[in-house]
């Protein structure tokens, strides 16, 4: 099954202020983690995203379209990065996420969302 794995944003990631020493250590650990994912044959894609100060939203209301500039307020619901993985099941995805280095200097969250499969569609 295919899953998308979201690294949720934090105040730090949104402000783009990561302690320099911490950031280089985290990047090295994340590089090793990505190597492991690749070696296991499950990694399809990985990328980090710029803070939402660089983002835009288009709000829909019937025929209306309104463009909203970032940054956006609800920090904990924003996405800072993502992977696409091919895994056997959600248990495997959770086991992989558990061994991911903490992507943020403080508390943070990673969310796993399975893709719709052909069988799920009406």
């Amino acid at each position: 099954m295919r899953v998308i794995v979201f690294v949720k944003a934090t105040e730090d990631s949104e402000q783009g202020t990561m302690p320099a020493g911490w950031a280089s250590e985290m990047m090295a650990a994340m590089g090793r983690f990505n190597d492991e994912l690749r070696d296991a044959g499950i990694l399809l894609m990985a990328d980090g995203l710029k803070p939402t100060s660089q983002a835009k939203r288009v709000a829909f209301d019937g025929p209306g379209r309104t463009v909203i500039d970032g940054p956006f307020a609800e920090t904990r619901e924003l996405v800072a990065g993502f992977w696409l993985w091919d895994v056997k099941d959600m248990d495997e995805a959770v086991a992989w996420v558990r061994r991911c280095p903490n992507p943020m200097p403080g508390p943070s969250e990673i969310e796993i969302r399975p893709f719709n499969e052909a069988a799920d569609l009406p």
């Binding site: 056997k88 959770v94 086991a95 992989w96 558990r98």
Partner: peptide, 11 residues
């Protein structure tokens, strides 16, 4: 139990 088996499957 399931979480441990998932770790085991990876290894």
């Amino acid at each position: 139990h399931r979480a441990i088996e998932a770790v085991f499957r990876i290894e």
